[in-house]
């Protein structure tokens, strides 16, 4: 089932509208490739393609858990995770553009 999902995702990759219109990568380019690599089990490959994907997935998992169990300090930790994800995205984007 996981294999078929991966296969379907690989055959239905969407082009980034930003990249199509403007010509260079947007800060979100690479997410799909990284996600497919992660589904295949290549964690390092996924981090190389898009470093912010795994923290972002953790953020969503934590958000769902927080909505379900309502931790008292959960909102604050979510905020710190969010700031971490945003800074990873920006730093990796700057490195990608300078390379």
């Amino acid at each position: 089932m996981l294999y078929s999902l991966t296969h379907w995702l690989e055959n239905n990759m969407q082009t980034c509208g930003f990249k199509k219109a403007i010509g260079f990568d947007c800060p979100g380019c690479g997410t799909q490739r990284a996600f497919i690599a992660l589904l295949k089990g290549h964690v390092m490959e996924s981090i190389r393609l898009y470093p912010a994907l795994i923290p972002m997935l953790i953020l969503f998992l934590f958000l769902i858990l927080h909505l379900k169990f309502k931790f008292t300090k959960g909102g604050t930790y979510l905020m710190y995770t969010f700031i971490l994800v945003v800074s990873i995205i920006l730093i990796s984007y700057i490195f990608k553009m300078l390379r």
């Binding site: 969407q14 980034c16 509208g17 930003f18 199509k20 219109a21 947007c26 800060p27 979100g28 380019c29 997410t31 972002m56 969010f82 994800v85 945003v86």
Partner: peptide, 8 residues
């Protein structure tokens, strides 16, 4: 945040 990068 994720919606920001998705799509046209």
């Amino acid at each position: 945040l994720p919606v920001c990068f998705c799509y046209f």
